[in-house]
Simulated assay, not measured.
Amino acid sequence: MATTTDSNTIVDRRYDFVYLFDVADGNPNGDPDAGNLPRLDPQTLQGFVTDVCIKRKIRNAVAALTNDEPGHEIYFQTQDAVYEKRILNRQHQRAHDAIGDGAKSKDDSAKAKADKTRQAREWMCRNFYDVRAFGAVMSTGVNCGQVRGPAQITFARSVDPIVPMEVAITRKSVTTEEEAEKQSKKDGSITGTMGRKSTVPYALYVGHGFINPLLAADTGFTYADLRLFFDAMIRMFDFDRSASRGLMAVRKIYVFEHASRLGNAPAHTLFDHVKIEPLGLEKPPRSFDAYELGDKLGDLREKLPKGVTLHELPEEFDDFQPGS
């Protein structure tokens, strides 16, 4: 394959990756069905973090890194976004307005409607980074079609079983005058309120991801988008808005770059090369130093099939030029 140097070139080769992150004294992904306790596999007691949670953090990082510059708006907004941006059909209407379909067309044939939907879909891909990367169902009322994105992420699962903890917390203030008066009459002072906080003392999580060039061609996902994707993933906890996250950090991202769009090896055979082993310490792990990454990087690269290149992030990010 010819060398690709233009960052605006559509991604034309496959990428598979393994990502490692850890949490200390925080809740990486609360379960609303379990009182917001950290998510847990009941059979293995391993913790897990959903793909939706990871994508939300990547979206937040992309928004912070690009400041919503043209082509990098975020379709699925957070709760602190302005009212209009959280209503998806308003975003869809922007697409139809942009392609000149604001007024009802006289031609209401199936072909005309399909063509307008296709144009609106293309506009959404051009303007919204997360639509271009992750895809979206945009056929809700104001129809912009559906998009399957090239960037797919799995759940992340902890290496070891976790022990979720609930910690009692106090707040020495009250919300209303009525509550203040009630506490003062009973205790002689404002005693405050009690609450609980769910945490994981420490856990190392491992997840996997894929970049599909066949879908990249459909959404217009470029090598510049891909580099931004990994930049956002490296820094996703720096821009995390969760108040209960504790200390979280992306420790490693192993990116396997294929020389072809169909790939030069099955993804699972590449993932099997990345081994994370506990050091066998007598006490429970409480830091990343309690684990050993199986093969040294040089040894790992020697085992790779022909046509597969390994990039270790964040250490090699400055020199990481995907597609070159």
Rank of each mutant, 00 (worst) to 15 (best):
N264P: 13
R90S: 00
K252Y: 15
S260T: 15
G145R: 11
G47W: 07
A114V: 09
E84D: 07
A63L: 11
S198D: 13
E181I: 14
G71E: 01
K182T: 14
L310M: 06
D187S: 06
N212L: 07
S189Q: 15
K104Y: 04
M248R: 05
L214I: 02
V137M: 08
M233A: 11
I276N: 02
R301N: 00
D31L: 01
T170M: 14
G149D: 03
A267W: 11
R196N: 11
P305D: 10
I58N: 11
F134H: 11
G102H: 00
K55E: 02
K172S: 15
L37E: 11
H311M: 05
E84P: 07
V142G: 01
T309I: 11
T4S: 02
D107G: 10
H258E: 12
E315G: 02
K85I: 00
E69H: 13
V163K: 14
I153M: 14
G307V: 00
R261G: 00
H208C: 04
Y15S: 09
N60L: 14
F229Q: 14
M248E: 10
D12Q: 09
H273Q: 08
M233V: 02
K303Q: 15
S324Y: 05
G280F: 06
G209L: 05
K185W: 01
Q152H: 05
P38C: 09
T140A: 03
A133I: 03
V200Q: 01
K306W: 02
F256T: 05
D31Y: 06
P213E: 12
P70F: 13
M165G: 08
T9R: 15
G26F: 01
A217M: 10
